[in-house]
Write a protein that binds this DNA or RNA. Structure first.
Length: 225
DNA sequence: GCGACAG
DNA sequence: ATCTTGTCGC
């Protein structure tokens, strides 16, 4: 089988970005949500062309999950994809889309990891610090850590550990379907992240905020051409 | 030195 | 992420 190949990244750039992550890391706060959310957002980015990034934010009322807003922003790609540094490529454009929301969310579900990252600075944590808003990540595949496969029934979960430290939870959102990886981003803790992910699941592998952000990204992509 | 590697 | 045909299961 073939695995994705990532071209070597410029060492000096990587060193600089790593330093930036270490600084942001000191600003991340893992704590319970202050209150039940009234609005929860989902976001996602796609690339209509290799040099164009399209970011989407959807706003849902909680806990009904009724869609109340959907916005997007298109911009130029300025940073290549490098594992561990996804936020530097997508966050700038996501911020532009976020500004277009009439109503700001109480918490944001980000597609990607939160603290389930080598330096505990996945895109969900990164975005949370930049916006100073509660965030958590729901990723479709593993980046860092080890885990035991959760039981095959929806709702099953198992801890995601990195050197003995709990950095996330592997959650089976649908029977016999590959699980998702849930981790706190900023101003959120593991219990709330997992609880919200479960509460936002509606029979699909992806919780509604992320699933709808994904869906609208596809629609907007057609719309801009 | 050899793998692993979100989107 | 993106490209891209067929195939499996409810």
């Amino acid at each position: 089988m073939y695995r994705p190949y990532h071209p070597p990244a410029d060492p000096i750039v990587v060193r600089d970005l790593t330093q930036q992550q270490e600084e942001m890391r000191t600003r991340v706060r893992i704590e319970p949500l202050h209150a039940e959310p009234t609005f929860i957002a989902g976001c996602d980015s796609s690339f209509p062309t290799p040099e164009t990034i399209l970011s989407v934010f959807v706003l849902l009322r909680y806990p009904t999950l009724e869609l109340v807003e959907k916005v997007y922003h298109v911009g130029p790609v300025t940073v290549p994809y490098v594992p561990g540094f996804l936020a530097f490529r997508e966050a700038p454009n996501l911020l532009k889309a976020y500004e277009k929301l009439q109503q700001k969310p109480d918490v944001i579900m980000v597609d990607g990891h939160g603290i389930a990252h080598k330096r505990r600075m996945g895109i969900a944590a990164h975005l949370g610090v930049l916006l100073d808003t509660p965030t958590f990540g729901v990723a479709k595949s593993l980046l860092t850590g080890k885990f035991e496969d959760p039981a095959p029934t929806a709702g099953s979960r198992s801890p995601l550990l990195d050197k003995g430290e709990l950095i996330g939870e592997v959650l089976r959102t649908k029977d016999r379907v590959l699980p998702v990886f849930v981790s706190p981003g900023h101003r959120c803790d593991q219990a709330n992240a997992t609880r919200l992910a479960v509460a936002c699941t509606r029979g699909y592998k992806l919780p509604e905020p992320t699933r709808l952000a994904d869906h609208w990204a596809e629609q907007f992509k057609k719309e801009i051409r």
